[in-house]
Nucleic acid binder design. Structure first.
Lengths: 206, 206
DNA sequence: CTGCACTTGTGCAAGTTTGCACTCATGCAT
DNA sequence: ATGCATGAGTGCAAACTTGCACAAGTGCAG
């Protein structure tokens, strides 16, 4: 009842989340981040200020559409399915999936990216956000490793995840258009390529 | 904060009221009154069934957009203002105002009228509705008469109101297009004319 | 007739939104 | 510096919405 067949409550929550985010993007686009009051965003979104803070913990989060990161059932299943790639590739994808789930709707990706690019406060917030995702992914990978046939040390799993994060960062740095595209396949392709590059590089140092 | 400068809560309430009413009109238009389920109306309006019944006490009421009749501040003030006509004319207008306030948005008047015309259940409900309005107007007029300089008996006030109701009925019967117009002035004009006709007729019997 | 399915309408508990009254921090004018 | 306005963010109670379970009525197949 929560992943694919949302109740009225969940649908409404999703809609409000998007409405506040969209209102925030519009107003920040019109007036700039500093000159946009939370009150104004709430009003345009058609909710009270209190409700605004029920949905987003801060103005920054609303502008980014950043929701509290969590591992969705879909993402977890994809990660646990061994037929969809080797474990490192699956870890990269898990990281990417969680990142996406905790980010506002894809249709606003371009605008968000632009705002973040020239706004230090937002940039800082994105960093914190990614760190949170990282921890989540770490615990998932650690947990899975413990239950697997060839358990890895927690330390190794942790490094594994940081490596996955680096791959993603690398893929987006070397393909700047990825940050503003809606094409999931293109992202996946770039990630796969980045994984290859990393594998090669890692051979050099091992 | 309640008549002209509605709070977020009141605005939302008004919107939901209209959304349910509109959904009801649409579905009844598409499927007929009997074949339209409350569940379907609620779903189209984007609310739960329980909320549907929080807004309207029955399916009929939702189709009619009939809200619990009450005397608004504006209507009361208009009635109490002696510069806007003699007491009978003001009573007619009070009746009309309350009727309008307890009816769905004017833009759906035509469709409502059509549905009521060929649907006995709705017709019955409209009758009950008008009776409720009548009682309300009676108590207002009685109350005002008691405080006036020339108090009238309660019985006389009651007759006064029924007379006002008859004037309205007469005006709409003899100007069928009034039932589907959005032109308030045209309605007022027709009412004024009807009042004249009644005055003449009453002279004959007094 | 009997059982079954379906619909209207209601009671209630749990979850959500609102309004309001704060606190805290920042900036700005006196 | 001191007061003063403004904006972010929070706690709380009251109002509202939702989901669910249930009563009552209606129609219809067997």
């Amino acid at each position: 009842m929560s992943e694919s067949n949302p109740s009225l409550r969940e649908r409404h929550r999703t809609r409000t989340l998007a409405e506040i985010h969209q209102a925030a993007l519009e107003l920040v686009g019109e007036c700039g981040y500093g000159d946009t009051a939370v009150d104004a965003i709430a009003e345009r979104a058609g909710v009270s200020r209190r409700t605004f803070f029920n949905y987003y913990p801060s103005k920054e989060a609303a502008v980014l559409g950043a929701t509290e990161p969590r591992i969705s059932e879909a993402a977890r299943e994809r990660f646990l399915d061994p037929t969809t790639g080797d474990e490192f590739a699956r870890t990269v994808r898990l990281f990417m999936d969680v990142l996406r789930d905790a980010t506002g709707p894809p249709e606003f990706t371009a605008r968000r990216h632009e705002l973040v690019e020239n706004n230090p406060e937002l940039k800082r917030r994105v960093g914190m956000h990614i760190t949170t995702v990282e921890s989540l992914v770490v615990s998932t990978v650690v947990e899975h490793s413990a239950q697997g046939t060839t358990p890895r040390s927690e330390e190794t799993s942790h490094a594994f995840v940081l490596l996955a994060g680096a791959v993603i960062k690398f893929a987006f740095r070397t393909n700047t258009h990825l940050a503003t595209t809606l094409d999931d396949d293109a992202v996946q392709l770039a990630l796969d390529h980045a994984i290859g590059v990393f594998r090669t590089a890692l051979k050099e140092i091992s």
